[in-house]
Design a protein around this nucleic acid. Structure first.
Lengths: 188, 188
DNA sequence: TATAATGGCTAATATGATTAGCTTTTAGAA
DNA sequence: TTCTAAAAGCTAATCATATTAGCCATTATA
């Protein structure tokens, strides 16, 4: 029986696809192994178990998002850059819903690796807010404001929890406008 | 062996306490049963299994929150009422973290009972925003803005995903101020 | 007081994570 | 090219937990 060229990265990629398809919380090693045409114990040659895999998926998500943000924000500044940042989140939540779920769902590990992954987003976001006339502390708060909104709104949307029939992208855009308008409050 | 006066409500209360203590996702029927001094199969006399219990816990959370909001908002209006609403969320997330976590777990349950539970919050929130001069559609969008922010910010905070050391309540208050300031943008 | 419902129990089953230990492939050195 | 060791897979076994089945004691009520 010949081998596939599997490694840790490949396992995470498969897991990410599986998460997008069936939902992050429904992932099992059994299912993942079936998808990969191997047996579940073989996964342990690449990863440290289900918990660890979920952590990896979270980190994968943060890195992916960081790239998408940089990509979209490139060449923009001010309010436009903020909107681009928000749209990057929107796209991730829409196109990679399982990976997006991993980013907020994983709460057991607060280690150095996870911290570095989120730090990337923090730095990029922070930089985008640098055009506004804010103190470093205000800027840090504002990063949290946006991150909280983006994570929460998009999670609620992804899970069909906005039960009325109003268009979600319109709500999203309006919300972003409200937030951007609110930034002026900090400049007093 | 005499019996305790256990029923469905009691099981949910115990489960809520356990969730607050060890985290929603760490709940097991085994642990819960131990806490209640019964064996895990006995739980099935009151609930339909772990998944169903988690749904009950989510509904419990929404009802609890609704009560807390009404309580805090009572007698307030305008921006003060909005702040009170936000603080009710904050308190729930802080003091009943396990229950709060249950509320973000609704994604697997989109049934009539769950819908009614969230509808309560929607109505209260909507009413609070009625003092602003907004169209019904704008109001509906704004409810989503706040709900998204509150759910997301507090989830990230509860999951320790805000890695820098800045005070979380300060970030929260500033965020709420930014949002409230942003509402003015809609009145043009 | 007799009886039915209730709430608890133990034993058994199912699923999935994880571990142990074996075998084959593969990479790299001699 | 051949040998060797690591790597990547496998099967079998173990463990933990959820869940089901069916039994028995308590409790409430007719």
């Amino acid at each position: 029986m010949p081998r596939q060229g599997l490694d840790k990265e490949a396992v995470i990629e498969y897991a990410a696809m599986l998460a997008d398809e069936i939902g992050f919380s429904n992932i099992t090693l059994k299912l993942l192994a079936e998808r990969m045409n191997i047996k579940s114990p073989s996964l342990y040659k690449h990863i440290d178990g289900l918990d660890s895999l979920k952590k990896e998926l979270m980190i994968y998500g943060y890195k992916l998002l960081e790239g998408m943000i940089i990509d979209k924000v490139m060449g923009k500044s001010g309010d436009d850059a903020v909107r681009a940042l928000c749209n990057a989140y929107y796209e991730l939540a829409t196109n990679r819903s399982g990976v997006f779920q991993a980013m907020e769902n994983y709460r057991r590990f607060v280690d150095e690796e996870s911290k570095q992954a989120t730090d990337g987003i923090f730095k990029v976001t922070s930089k985008i807010f640098s055009v506004y006339d804010l103190s470093p502390v205000q800027k840090a708060h504002l990063v949290r404001t946006f991150r909280g909104f983006l994570q929460g709104f998009l999670t609620l949307a992804a899970n069909h929890l906005f039960t009325d029939s109003i268009d979600i992208k319109e709500s999203f855009d309006l919300s972003v406008d409200v937030l951007i308008a609110g930034i002026a409050y900090l400049n007093k």
